[in-house]
């Protein structure tokens, strides 16, 4: 049996048009709340379109009409069966002070793994410099770190910061921001290698950090080191750890550490919002770190006393820890 397609379309088209109009309305205004009668009408139209699609698939083979109906049914299906939390109206302040720290704490285990891997790297870098100082040229492929720290300190303390930054401070600052964000996204994205890529990135980063630290401390330049690193490092290093956290969240979802009952697809869906929250959060931190590194960290004594730089860096680190630990916590209500 083949249906009379023209008659069928003439009868059904007004309902398809009504359904399409409703879908357009819902898709363009996600916050718009439909009244009960409209919801009932929408469900009726969806069922009717589904039934038309089934009829068309069985009794006709008109591809164009079938595709049109398929797209309507697919869009309606998405609206009706979507159970994930709907997007709210964007509230940046609430997102930053509540959503971001809450997300960080919800995924804290991945952060600890990230911190552990970095610490292992720092340990290895430190040991490598202590045991075999010549390994410095292999571990630190940066020309400005190859010489003796005391020589660099003497040079830094007599030069004007603007002279040593190619292109000027603003260019240097934006270079640092974009470069560090890119490296962080790599660290996160490499979580798709079941975490191996993320481990390598964090571990290598830790090795460099440990080697630089050991090199400066052994040369008696600990004060310069902390004065140079703390102002921006107190935000930059935690940001890289957050990138590692995001990477391990991805890896965890692939491996199934947390919820073995769900499929890989289900686990990836579950973490997607948290993942994006962490990445946007760390990008904001890295923008700040880039500004500080370019406009503050590069000024040394006698222009800026090391005590001031160390104090500001330490306060910043403390504030960041407090922010991530306590911000957005719901007050506990006293139980009766």
């Amino acid at each position: 049996m083949i249906i009379d397609l023209k008659k069928f379309m003439k009868e059904e088209k007004p309902r398809w048009a009504e359904l399409e109009k409703l879908l357009d309305r819902m898709e363009s205004n996600p916050d718009d709340k439909l009244d009960l009668a409209t919801v009932q009408r929408f469900y009726y139209l969806y069922q009717r379109a589904s039934s038309d699609l089934a009829k068309l698939s069985t009794f006709s083979f008109d591809r164009e009409t079938k595709r049109h109906l398929e797209s309507l049914v697919a869009r309606s299906f998405g609206e009706i069966h979507e159970t994930r939390e709907k997007a709210h109206r964007l509230s940046p302040i609430n997102w930053f002070f509540v959503t971001l720290p809450q997300t960080f704490r919800r995924q804290i285990k991945a952060f600890w793994v990230s911190l552990l891997i970095t610490c292992l790297g720092v340990g290895l870098g430190t040991i490598a410099i202590i045991v075999d100082y010549d390994s410095k040229s292999v571990i630190m492929p940066f020309s400005h770190l190859q010489g003796a720290p005391s020589e660099r300190v003497a040079k830094e303390e007599t030069s004007v910061p603007d002279d040593k930054m190619p292109g000027g401070m603003a260019t240097f600052s934006s270079y640092l921001m974009t470069h560090n964000i890119k490296v962080s996204i790599y660290t996160m994205a490499l979580g798709m290698t079941y975490g191996i890529g993320t481990i390598l990135m964090l571990f290598y980063n830790g090795i460099i950090l440990g080697a630089v630290g050991a090199d400066y401390i052994l040369d008696g330049q600990a004060v310069f080191l902390f004065g140079w690193l703390l102002p921006h490092g107190s935000v930059e290093i935690p940001s890289i750890l957050l990138a590692g956290q995001a990477g391990f969240m991805l890896a965890g979802a692939l491996i199934g550490w947390k919820n073995k009952a769900l499929t890989v697809r289900g686990r990836l869906r579950e973490i997607s919002s948290d993942l994006v929250t962490i990445v946007i959060g760390l990008a904001i931190f890295l923008v700040w770190a880039g500004i500080i590194e370019s406009f503050f960290s590069q000024f040394h004594a006698p222009v800026l006393p090391y005590s001031l730089k160390i104090a500001l860096g330490s306060i910043q680190l403390l504030l960041l820890i407090l922010f991530l630990t306590f911000s957005g916590r719901e007050k506990k209500t006293k139980e009766a």
Partner: peptide, 10 residues
């Protein structure tokens, strides 16, 4: 040029 380069990079 410093400011413009910075803006372009971003």
């Amino acid at each position: 040029s410093d400011f413009l380069n910075a803006i372009f990079l971003i």
